[in-house]
Design a protein around this nucleic acid. Structure first.
Lengths: 352, 352
DNA sequence: CTGAAAGCGCTTACAG
DNA sequence: CTGAAAGCGCTTACAG
């Protein structure tokens, strides 16, 4: 007597919500009158299966409201999981980026495993954890990038692409904008506007973005014969860091007449310090620039001149490169550097 | 001849990076001279296993650099995955929140599956997708919450907690702050400061937070005998929405003398419109308030009076409640409403 | 507390 | 193209 199944189906529906029995390949196969292999193949885009068979399976699956169990699938095959490693959770720059990444990943019917890398847990540990999920690929947005991470990815043979960092690493794919160029452009904009004693407010120590921006900035200043520049450590990419660094800088004897911050959110903090604590006028007394072109840069309050990163394109290229590597792991790592673009707004004097 | 194993181990290490063979329970068991069950138990905190056995396993595991495969584990047991459903990716309010959630989830040795719910894909679909990963639990930050989502969770028996929304639903755990109270407080602060013609700039239509804030605001105004209020639709929670709504409002005949925005980022946009487009002084000509107390509210540029949500506590309570439900699925849903707190800054006149 | 064995839900050689 | 069967890496009754 095959009673067990019926039993299961109409088992006291009003009772304490028992875990609804999941429908599996077996049930679908039964319902469709085919093998489980057929069911499996039907749900795998590039498996060899005839149209009619696939449709039969889909029909049965739909009727039973079958959803493949990704976890089980992931054991032998792709997990459909993409890890996103993030550090800079207090930089608003990253929210829209995260937004686009997750959408794009979902568009390719994968999901995002978001890994928060912070002080407590070193990045190495983070990678190991994410590897336990057999992620198909990894996006790394961390500003500081330890070598071990890259090694871990390679040893696991997990495709990874680094977002927004410069291409010193040649063993892994990197998508970034040309930060040296960004520095050049900032120097030009400030010099063209007539500022003569500019300063660079650096970001997190040792991160390639800030190093390159500084290098590009200073070298262009000197090229153009400006020698009265200075550099100050800013610390992290945050409003407070920019604010504090600015106050510190203006305690010194040599006051700059223009400030180029390692990124926009620092510039916003700095501008507030200039205007509201130091009583200086922007752009008349001091010119201010940042990098990124975050939403706030285009607000009426800050109206910040900046160097815009081609975010949309960087994101698109990152996703494209990642999925290319996922489908063909033999692909050599590439290094994609996109140009950036100056955006002149009200925080600098008009260039002459 | 047991050659196969040795073969595997020292197989041409210099060759094209073959997928490094993962070490599994079987190898660890062999190395430790125990059963695979023992290995499994050693890695499951509440399995019954003796200390010495566990240590023996750990030693072997460490030597082999064994990491349990979470995917395989997830088939029969917990996936250690927590889904986070988000909509509002253009509200900076959510970045720190996301930061805390992911950290807390990682602290409990789980990981975050971040689901971006947007227009293209309805929330129903998002939930189904996330269910395919057998998430242990779900955090929902979506402002608008369709009933189907709640049903989906229940039918899958997946614990879920809704963050930042009001407790109209009684079938699922909700953590929010008292938004009616927030409205009351805003009304009090503006009235106490001497404003007499306040307006409410609403957020996304149909979301409980904005509805409740409006209700609390208006009802308190009327209680205190102020009848010259108005309400305008703001649209989404964003800088632009606040900016645009403000310009629209000031085209009308009846100009308000104080604005209470549904949230801080709208208030920032609005304040910029007031100051830079309409040439009004804040707080002298118009008082401005928001809700949330985002980082920017405390900047010198905006210096925004607001109603602070007890974010830290809301997050903590959300996580606690979620994990309680995960370990005991029979727990009844609770509805946790926390008080909020007025923060008086420079965008409103000093209360008398 | 411990082990041998069956099972989780899906995939993938292997034959046909 | 299709199916029967073995296997993925782990967990969990079931005995002892």
């Amino acid at each position: 007597m095959t009673v067990s199944k019926e039993n299961r189906d109409n088992q006291s529906p009003s009772f304490p919500p028992k875990k609804k029995p999941k429908v599996t390949v077996v049930e679908v196969a039964e319902a469709a009158g085919v093998s489980v292999s057929a069911v499996s193949r039907a749900f795998n885009p590039d498996a060899s299966i005839s149209r009619p068979l696939r449709e039969k399976v889909f029909k049965a699956a739909a009727a039973l409201n079958y959803k493949p169990n990704r976890l089980a699938r992931g054991i032998k095959s792709r997990s459909s999981l993409v890890g996103i490693l993030m550090t800079d959770f207090n930089n608003p720059f990253y929210l829209p980026i995260l937004s686009r990444f997750t959408s794009e990943i979902q568009n390719r019917s994968c999901h995002s495993l978001l890994i928060h890398v912070d002080g407590d847990m070193d990045i190495q540990e983070a990678v190991e954890l994410v590897m336990e999920y057999n992620v198909d690929g990894l996006i790394i947005t961390s500003a500081s990038l330890p070598k071990e991470l890259v090694d871990a990815c390679r040893s696991q043979n997990t495709p990874a692409v680094i977002f927004g960092r410069d291409s010193s690493e040649n063993s892994v794919t990197v998508v970034s904008c040309d930060n040296v160029l960004a520095g050049n452009m900032a120097a030009d904009m400030l010099l063209d506007a007539g500022y003569t004693k500019p300063a660079f407010v650096a970001g997190p120590v040792g991160t390639s973005a800030t190093i390159d921006r500084q290098r590009g900035f200073i070298s262009r200043l000197m090229e153009r014969g400006c020698n009265q520049w200075q550099v100050i450590e800013g610390g992290e990419f945050s409003y407070d860091a920019g604010y504090d660094a600015t106050l510190r800088m203006f305690k010194s004897v040599e006051r700059p007449d223009a400030l180029f911050y390692a990124d926009d959110i620092m510039a916003c903090g700095g501008m507030d310090a200039l205007r509201y604590d130091l009583g200086l006028r922007v752009p008349e007394d001091v010119g201010v620039m940042g990098v990124d072109d975050i939403r706030l840069a285009n607000s009426r309050s800050y109206d910040l001149s900046t160097i815009r990163q081609p975010n949309e394109e960087m994101i698109q290229r990152t996703i494209d490169a990642l999925f290319e590597h996922i489908s063909d792991p033999q692909l050599p790592p590439q290094s994609i550097t996109l140009p950036c673009e100056p955006v002149e707004r009200g925080s600098t004097k008009k260039s002459k």
